[in-house]
Design a protein around this nucleic acid. Sequence first.
RNA 1: GCCCCCAUCGUCUAGUGGCCUAGGAUACCAGGUUUUCAUCCUGGCGGCAGGGGUUCGAAUCCCCUUGGGGGUGCCA
Length: 499
Amino acid sequence: MNLKYRKEKTMSNIRVRFAPSPTGQIHIGNIRTALFNWLYAKKEDGSFILRIEDTDKERSTTEFEEIIHREMEWLGLDWDEGVKVGGDYGPYRQSERLDTYEEYVEKLLEEDKAYYCYCTEDELDEMRERAKAQGEAPKYNGKCRELSISEKEELEAAGREPVVRFKLPEKEETVVVKDIIKGDVEFSSEVLDDFVIVKSDGIPTYNFAVVIDDHLMEISHVIRGEDHLSNTPKQILIYEALNWDTPKFAHLSMILGSDKSKLSKRSGEAYVYVSQYRKRGYLPEALINFLSLLGWSPENDEEIFTIDEIVNRFSMDRVTKSSAVFDVEKLNWMNSHYIKEADLDRIIDLAIPYLKDGGYVDDELISEKREWIAKIVDLVRDSLDYVAQIVDHVDIFFGEMEYEDKEEVIECFQQEDVDLVLETLRDRLRALEDYSPESVLEEMRAILKDLPVGGRLFFHPARYAITGKGSGPELYHVVSILGKEETVKRIEQSLDLIS
RNA sequence: GCCCCCAUCGUCUAGUGGCCUAGGAUACCAGGUUUUCAUCCUGGCGGCAGGGGUUCGAAUCCCCUUGGGGGUGCCA
């Protein structure tokens, strides 16, 4: 007998889901919703489910679904159930659940809670236009509500493919969304109309499928963007029509672009897709940390957290009601912090593709001089907002030295005693054996002491002479990395400018 | 148009009637870390949208106005 004892996760009955539609690149707003769902599930020992809402046949693609998986995995947002990993409540792709939806559509049809509508798009447009012209709400007028059998047959014979509409309650009723974040939000059924629940191609609409799935998957908390709040009463009406209890709702405020509109390609942000941040060399933990603070705050003033710390501190009642502008400047600060803290090898691996693209290194150099490259990366990582920026900081280590501004360099060199400074520097560095950073620093300080100049007339010319630039990383580190031969060669090259 | 949500420094936020002459972070500015850029440290600038109430007392509660956002699809 082989009894295996394995540690069972003690799951609560909290079940949340992230339900993106694969109709485009996953962006910051979506992933923030995913994150908050994930955080809540982790905090409450619940289950996090990934469901793909691909009922828009026109725009959904498997490529976009792959991108969703990829970016979530990159960020470490793993899911307990859903596409790819399976689970007891599958399938987790709506396009594979059509039979299930049909069952409930039939039920509503039979109970006269839904009906076929044969109106064409043109008729609908006209209807809306007319309503608007008369200053009325552009609602469906219920034209097909009471079609006779013969009328239906006639329309079908004419080739009309019907949609199914949900029949609103006859008498006005107040639908209350009990929202964890927003509080009780009331809607009058008057402002709704008989909305479509099944499209003419036989595929259910979002508002219908989401109800069926959330119920059947036993979702306990629907945590989603505020853009869904106005649609929630429709969904609640469906829950009621089916005699189901509603899950708890939590509508997260929007993330806005710098122009204060919903974050999108058009809202003024250079980058709105998760992949763009990954590709520029943002660290997942930085993005997670930053996003977690968009709409949520811990009880104290801390801001830098590991993911576990965020989970421990996370709580729904510390989620804000108001929307938040995505401030890439603060993300940069946070990301640069994580770049400094990260394991060097990790940053090197991230940096290599950019260094290759920039033409600085190739596979041969990487395998032969990884240690040398490591020193460079370690030295310049402090000045990076994101790893892609590294190419702007490493040119001083590769190839021929180039003067950023030759005139300025010459002007600097022509100051009194600078020729002496450079000559002395060249001679002493040529004589120096130990090129470790410590040794170089010690020697440079010694040289400065022996010369009749102050620091400003020493380090600045020296930097120009060795790197061709007026600013850069700590000079003694640069010299150490460059090595004796290259350093001396460069100083001589610079000396030629004033001889 | 109609419905809904929101409203504290430029930005992210703390704040749930007195502890607030409003705290932190970022950004920005200045000084320091005896060279520059960056890092780091210290300091500074900067805000309760407006108007009415309620109350002994309001950033906090209520109303109105204004502003912003979202929804109003056979998109999700």
